[in-house]
Measured scan of single mutants.
Amino acid sequence: MDTYKLILNGKTLKGETTTEAVDAATAEKVFKHYANEHGVHGHWTYDPETKTFTSTE
C-alpha cells in the first residue's frame, strides 16, 4: 500500500488529508467521497510523481 495525499482548495473548506491505498484509482474514490461529504465539488488533478490529488473550486 502507498500513501496518497489530497489538497482541498474549496470555497468553504481548505486543507489536506492522506489515505493508504493499493493504487491511485482507489485513493481517488476515497478522496472524492471525502470531498463530496464536505461539500467540495471542484476540478480534480493528480500528480503521479508525488501521489497528490488536488481539488479546486
Results as ranks from 00 to 15, higher is better:
K5T: 14
T56K: 06
N36W: 14
W44L: 08
I7H: 04
T12M: 11
G10K: 03
S55L: 15
T3Q: 08
V22C: 11
E49S: 11
L6P: 02
D23Y: 02
G39H: 06
L8A: 02
H41E: 11
T18W: 14
E37C: 12
E49K: 12
T52D: 00
Y46M: 01
A27W: 02
T18E: 08
L6A: 03
H43A: 13
L8N: 00
W44C: 03
E49G: 11
F53A: 00
K29H: 10
E28D: 04
K32Y: 06
S55Q: 08
H41G: 09
D47K: 04
V22Q: 11
E16F: 14
T54R: 07
P48D: 08
T19M: 12
K32L: 10
D2S: 14
G42C: 04
T12E: 10
E16T: 12
K11C: 14
M1K: 13
T45I: 07
H43T: 15
L13C: 15
K14F: 10
L13N: 07
K11Q: 12
K5M: 06
D2N: 14
L13K: 10
V30I: 15
K5P: 02
H41S: 11
L13P: 03
A25G: 08
D2I: 13
W44M: 09
L6W: 05
A21V: 03
H43Q: 13
E16Q: 10
V22P: 15
Y4N: 02
E57D: 07
E16G: 08
K51Y: 06
T54E: 06
A24M: 11
L6K: 01
D2E: 14
G10H: 13
K11G: 08
A24F: 13
E49A: 13
H38E: 05
P48A: 12
E57C: 05
V40W: 13
T54S: 07
I7E: 04
E28H: 10
D23E: 03
S55Y: 10
A24S: 08
Y34F: 11
H38C: 11
T19W: 07
E57K: 03
E20Q: 14
G10Q: 04
S55T: 15
A35I: 06
K51P: 00
N9M: 11
T17C: 15
A25R: 10
E57F: 06
N36T: 13
M1R: 10
L8F: 11
K32P: 00
T45S: 12
H33Y: 10
G42M: 06
T52F: 02
T18G: 03
H38W: 10
D2W: 12
K32S: 05
L6N: 02
L8Y: 11
G15I: 15
T56I: 09
T3W: 09
G39E: 05
T50L: 07
Y46K: 00
T17P: 01
Y46A: 00
T45F: 08
H33D: 13
H33P: 02
K14G: 06
E16N: 06
K29F: 08
K51N: 05
H43F: 14
E37M: 14
K51I: 01
H33K: 15
H33F: 11
V40A: 05
K5R: 14
N36D: 12
T52E: 04
A25K: 11
E20I: 13
F31S: 00
V40Y: 12
A27Y: 00
L8D: 01
T12W: 14
V40S: 04
P48L: 06
F31L: 07
H41F: 15
L8G: 01
L8C: 09
D23I: 02
K29R: 13
A21I: 01
G39V: 03
K14N: 09
T26K: 05
E37Q: 13
M1G: 09
K5S: 05
D2Y: 14
F53M: 00
K11L: 15
K29A: 12
A25F: 10
P48F: 07
H33G: 09
G42H: 04
L13I: 14
I7L: 06
L6Q: 01
L8P: 00
K32C: 08
Y34S: 01
T12S: 11
T12A: 10
T54F: 10
H38V: 14
T50P: 01
E37Y: 09
E28P: 00
T52G: 00
T19H: 07
V30Y: 15
I7A: 03
K11D: 09
T3I: 12
N9P: 02
T56N: 09
D23P: 01
G39W: 07
G10R: 03
V40T: 04
L13M: 14
F31Y: 01
V22R: 13
L13D: 05
H41C: 12
G42T: 04
E37F: 11
Y4A: 02
Y46F: 08
T18M: 08
Y34V: 04
G10F: 15
W44N: 01
V22H: 11
T18D: 04
K5Q: 04
A24V: 11
D2H: 15
E57H: 05
K14I: 10
T45D: 09
D23A: 03
T26R: 05
K5E: 03
H38K: 13
K14W: 11
K11Y: 11
T3G: 03
F53I: 00
V22A: 13
T19F: 12
I7V: 10
T45W: 06
K51A: 03
H33N: 13
E28I: 08
T17I: 15
K51F: 08
L6F: 08
A27T: 01
F53H: 00
E49I: 11
W44K: 00
E20Y: 12
T18K: 07
D47S: 07
T54P: 00
G42S: 05
L8W: 10
V30H: 12
T50K: 07
E20A: 10
K51L: 10
V40M: 08
K14C: 14
Y46Q: 00
E28F: 15
S55V: 15
M1E: 06
K11T: 12
G15V: 15
A21L: 01
T12H: 14
A27R: 01
E20K: 13
E37S: 12
F31M: 03
T56V: 09
P48C: 07
E37D: 09
A25S: 09
D2A: 13
E28A: 10
E49M: 12
H38Q: 12
T50Y: 05
L8R: 00
D47H: 06
Y46G: 00
H41L: 11
H38D: 02
V22K: 13
T12G: 09
Y4Q: 02
L8M: 10
Y34I: 07
G10T: 09
E16P: 03
E57L: 05
T26M: 11
T12V: 11
T26L: 05
D47A: 06
T56P: 03
M1H: 09
A24I: 08
N9L: 13
Y4I: 02
E28G: 06
P48Q: 08
A27V: 01
H43W: 13
L8I: 12
G42V: 05
V30A: 09
T19S: 04
T19P: 01
N9T: 08
T12C: 15
E16D: 05
N9H: 10
N9V: 13
H43V: 15
Y4V: 02
N9K: 10
T12I: 10
K32E: 05
T26Y: 07
P48E: 10
A21P: 01
A24R: 10
I7G: 01
A35R: 02
T56H: 07
D47I: 05
E37A: 13
T19L: 13
E49C: 11
F53G: 00
S55N: 13
D2K: 14
A21T: 04
I7P: 01
A25M: 10
T18S: 10
T52P: 00
A24N: 04
T52S: 04
G15R: 14
T12D: 11
N9A: 08
T26F: 07
K32W: 09
H33M: 14
H38S: 07
K32H: 09
G15H: 14
H38G: 04
T3C: 13
K29G: 08
A21K: 01
E57N: 04
D23W: 02
Y34W: 12
T45C: 09
S55C: 15
A21R: 02
T56Q: 08
N36H: 14
A25Q: 11
K5F: 12
H41Y: 14
T26G: 08
S55E: 04
